Amino acid sequence: MPASNGSTSPAVPTETATDLRVDCYVRSSVPGLTAETITTIVNRLQQLCDHGHISTYQLHPWPPEQHAVIETDETREPARHELVAEFERWADQHGVTLEPAFRRQEVPSSPLGISADEPRERIRVPLVALALYEDDSAAADQESASLQGVVPYTEQSPTGTAQTYTVDEWLTAVSTNTGEIVTYNSDSHDDHQPLLERQQ
């Protein structure tokens, strides 16, 4: 359920920034209702561009957990674990966590005892997430842009309550230029979680 109190100093930038690029990561296959919600998110990002709240945005499908074909460092996109590791470094630096929207789960080895099938880790990602970068259009290497924030994320309040800052809340805060956020109690049941922060 939404919390009644907001925070005026979120870990991610919410004020108008003409040098802010938003990378929107989405699942490539989602149910119809969720697809409509993601379309609404994209339309809101376009409106933020049109009104000068952000510099630009890019839409990406979540990368695979591992690349099927080995590519050179110059050409390949980061795999999911590399991308999420970058997000986790940002979260650690700002004293917040990406859970419960992002989760690492160990996949047990095969019960058949095949030696090559060793235990591995699976990274569960939300239906949609935003990565905020300092945009430098003049730079030749856009991959070197500085990560400014990731949404959704969760932080601990002074009272010890875990509060999750969602994609919808960030979009609203930026569009209204208030910088205020309304958070959700991450201890609530899944039925009360915002749709886009649920995992599949």
Rank of each mutant, 00 (worst) to 15 (best):
P31M: 10
D19L: 05
I114P: 01
T18C: 07
L20T: 07
A145K: 00
R104M: 03
R27V: 04
S28I: 14
V84Q: 04
Q93Y: 02
L45S: 07
R21G: 15
L98Y: 06
H94Y: 02
P126E: 03
T172Y: 05
S144A: 14
Q58K: 05
A140C: 11
E71Y: 11
R44H: 12
Q58R: 12
D50F: 06
L45K: 12
S55F: 10
E134H: 09
A162Q: 04
W90H: 04
R120D: 14
T75M: 14
V96A: 10
P126T: 11
S146M: 05
R76I: 03
T178N: 14
P61L: 02
Q163H: 13
I70S: 13
D136I: 00
L48E: 12
L195G: 01
N185A: 09
A139N: 09
W62K: 09
R104E: 06
F102Y: 11
E143M: 10
E71F: 15
V26G: 02
V125P: 06
V182W: 12
S175F: 00
C24I: 04
E180D: 09
T72P: 00
T172E: 03
P152F: 07
R122L: 15
D141R: 09
H51Y: 14
N185V: 13
P61T: 06
G32K: 07
H192E: 10
A116Q: 04
L48H: 07
R76H: 09
